[in-house]
Design a protein around this nucleic acid. Sequence first.
RNA 1: GCCGACGUAGCUCAGCCGGUAGAGCAGCGGUUUCGUAAACCGCCGGUCGGCAGUUCGAGUCUGCCCGUCGGCUCCA
Length: 668
Amino acid sequence: MGPPRTADMSAATRRNAGGTAGARALVPEIRGRGPFCLDERRTAMAKTERKPDHGDEALYALRHSTAHVMAGAVLELFPDAKFGFGPPVADGFYYDFDLPRALTDEDLPRIEERMRAMAKRDVPFEHREMPVPEALDFFRERHQDYKVEQIEKLDKADEQVELRNGSVSIYEHADFVDLCRGPHVERTSKIGAFRLLSVAGAYWRGNERNPQLQRIYGTVWPTEKELNEYLEKLKEIERRDHRALGRDLELFRIDEELGSGLVLWLPNLSIVREELENWWRKVHRERGYTLVYTPHIAHEKIYQRSGHLEKYGENMYGPLLLDDSAGATGGQRPPARFWIKPMNCPGHIKVFQSKIHSYRELPLRIGELGTVYRYERGGTLHGMLRVRGFTQDDSHIFCSWDQAQAEIGKVFDLAMEFLQTFGYRDPRVYLSTRPERRLGTDEQWDKAEKALADALGVREVPYDVDEGGGVFYAPKIDIKVMDAIGREWQGPTIQIDLNLPERFDVTFVNEKGERERAVMIHRVLFGSLERFVGGLIEHFAGNFPLWLNWEQAAIIPVRESARPYAEELATALRGAGLRVHLDEQAGDLRTRIKEAQQRKASYMLVVGDKEAAARTVSVRRRGAAQGEEERGVKLDEVIARLANERDTKALPPDFGPHGPSVADSLGG
RNA sequence: GCCGACGUAGCUCAGCCGGUAGAGCAGCGGUUUCGUAAACCGCCGGUCGGCAGUUCGAGUCUGCCCGUCGGCUCCA
């Protein structure tokens, strides 16, 4: 049932490479995302969209030129091909084609072959300016509808950069002529080490009402060495795929009969989650949060008031019809309609409104690990990273404007502490300001943006401003981070909501005894536990830190004679609150070590007669190289070490870009 | 939702041009008591994703549906 996995690079690998997902060149990152209330699942720990990163000028020209050579090769194979866009993107390039038949993976080597031939011919890339009327005729003659459309659009836009004196810029090599502003490498022999990676559908101009073209993704590097390093990185990404590790390590399962997009947390991952949740609750209590529980379904009227039904209804599960009207009265009252909650905010507002609040009680920080369900279109689901049911670590802070900046600052500090705990690196902070279309007054936006900016300013946090990048109801701070192998993920988000407090008339009583509108701050650290943990699996390559690990120690007696001591050791470790697996099977020690490695036990504690006599342990770390085990460690010392590693939440020694993985040991 | 590919045992896969399913791993039962990543023998295990259709006969061909994968789109 599972997806095909092959030893070489699979399509899955290619897709994840350097965030190939959502690759879009020459287009700014999609902004203003996030739905109504804070959409934590998407705003936190989503792999971020690939940005237009073309590297330096030389790399840009290389990628761009290779795209042209590829297009030329496609034209040789398909004389009727029509061409869409073919830009460079991070790590490579793509080109969109309208072809008489669907491309298959077998076509890629054939195209590559012709590209190599073209590189060998070593023809120059020639640039010239073509007056618009001539260009239109030229491309019309060749039935290049998309190019014609593009020229017409450029002409209309009359952009100085694109149109120089009523001409368009043309590049050609051999018989391939393309509308293109360059620059290119001088000759086709310079296109370096390339590889075509995958074929996929893509809409013309990215609009789903337009025809769908076939997109070929490729990568190109100045040298073979760099190409190989890149392909190696793709393999590493595949090895870390949380779906594969999820199967191999018995972490989670998504069952078709149960429903796609719904995650079963298997026992191992449930331990990880329990530890995360316990820590989350502890940290939040320490920071003065009030933790609550709210219902999983709610009456229609609350979602009418919140606006979710109107704005988000298509994604909601329901309605559930509760027909309690057909009873004794035999009345014809319409049945009550309930919906499964897609977000936690309305419930938290109701918690806040359960009584009148004095300014003295503020800020009130209401938090919940709240499970929500949202209907997502089939094509968007992806392992634990994009699901239909998930638990958000949701919090809403109700305060006055005077308190807002300080509260935002505290959330920011907490967010940084979270990221640090898991070893995420190089946080980058973005402040997204008011978009064109928005709710609320300018005065409100001024205050909200200032509160966010000042919170960062006080901390002297460097940040980028994304003008107009806010959500329609809120400006926000986003934090993005790098994982262990340098992929960027979207992390915590903080927003000031300018909508719901109005809709629900959220107030408190101020010093003067007047009702005052409360400020409502949305924030998320994990986002959804499903997505966060799915991300952690990839970040750690399955090598979880000891504090989260389901098997903190495997105790392996060398022979039957060491069993009593092994049991004593197990009892002692369990007494210290550690999760221990006592290996009771007979057989080859090497096999049992291997199996413990595959289960990702943090430590293998081997005990034989020598250890039993000396009351010591042979300690082998997960991922240790041959002969790296440490012999003769005192029993108490072992317990103290493990407990310390757990209590400090230390990152494991095999954490990093090249930690061994299950795939390594199984790969043979 | 759209384009394309795919769906055979818990997992990874084989199964030609239609003739009623096969391996390794895992599991189970034995044997093996071994010093740091694969001991040996045996057994169990499949309505071939589902429903129709074509055919004497369908894992194999056709249609629809479900699901998965790669993208696109969506995610106010």
